[in-house]
Design a protein around this nucleic acid. Sequence first.
DNA 1: CTAACGTTTGTCCAATCGGTCAAAAATTGC
DNA 2: GCAATTTTTGACCGATTGGACAAACGTTAG
Lengths: 213, 213
Amino acid sequence: MSSQSTVPPRRTRIQQEKRELILEAALEVFSTHGFRGSTIDQIADAAGMSKPNLLYYFRRKEDIYETLMERLLKTWLAPLRELDDSGDPIAEIRGYIRRKLEMARDFPRESRLFANEILQGAPRIMPLLEGELKELVDEKAEIIKGWMRAGKIVKTDPWHLIFSIWATTQHYADFDVQVRAVLGPDRGAEGRFEDAARFLENLFIHGLAPHKD
Amino acid sequence: MSSQSTVPPRRTRIQQEKRELILEAALEVFSTHGFRGSTIDQIADAAGMSKPNLLYYFRRKEDIYETLMERLLKTWLAPLRELDDSGDPIAEIRGYIRRKLEMARDFPRESRLFANEILQGAPRIMPLLEGELKELVDEKAEIIKGWMRAGKIVKTDPWHLIFSIWATTQHYADFDVQVRAVLGPDRGAEGRFEDAARFLENLFIHGLAPHKD
DNA sequence: CTAACGTTTGTCCAATCGGTCAAAAATTGC
DNA sequence: GCAATTTTTGACCGATTGGACAAACGTTAG
């Protein structure tokens, strides 16, 4: 009785290494030019191999993109998964913001690739958005609602809260060139990250902490 | 003595109408497929004319894109320009958020086109970001700083405040498909907008209002 | 050493792309 | 109505694209 999920085909050592090399190169290329804007030649160049050689490891351009997308989504949702029902609400949300911001800093190409896909209407990952993603968000929204009912944080819409955390943190990856252009060269990447972390923490914590009146 | 700025060439009535038709079609196509992902044929189809005919009005594909970008930037910055030094700080910021959110609702294609350009490194509008945009943001940041010094709003980083307003509002245009996928079909576009407006208002006003202790 | 298998390359192809051009058709000014 | 001008079209072109393929090359197990 075979498992329902697709079994990854057996691969040689060289195949594993080269596939990894190609995916790394493809991430670089796809994330800056989008799917249609990227060519197999560009990816092959970036990976240091010829086009037919690349096509030996991935038969179609789409296969590379899809493999990349599958991996991406797993790591992308990890920070939200960690949001813990039993933790302190304010600390949990602060932690989530920080983890999300760290991902924007450490994996900007993944963020841009994802943004590109969504911008174009998510033609390849729509089922995942309506399935896995929606389920996860609904589940966490319920947790946040519990915190609100308990008076731990101010009553507001948990879905839009999650959206606003996504938006503000990913902004520093997706709109990086704009952020840099506006802030000027004075403050380096590290400083920008610290400033952003401090600002977002203040905004969300003050915006969510229960206020007397 | 001629003016420094480029004088728009004289055009016939048909030229004005057809150029407008093309730009409208191009906005639709470019905003969903990006520059490289869009073809002249697609735009010509959407505009209801043949490719050579389209090329009679715009000699190159880039010309269409650049014309679109120029117009876009003007309307895009309008909401921030309206931020008024002499107004009530909280009301001014609330008004800015609302105007920005209304733009995301009413001009989602423009928002996505802009996002696409920035995502790919802003190759065609970088000078504008470092020039006009930076100047405007710096000027408004100074106003916000004044409000902070006067104790009207909590002391925080005005640049990152502006970024976070951009990020949260534009999110509803750029990531619309994701928002819809997560929220489900229950709540229509109008309801989503109202919820988002109420949430963001709460977040930013509570997050920025001076708090005692 | 050698046969089997895995890897790499050069060459080629059909489709699509942005763009040209000359001629036909429509419009306009007189 | 007619000539000048503007607009539209079909045919075409060179470049680029994703991908196929067979032959050459490397590697490995017996």
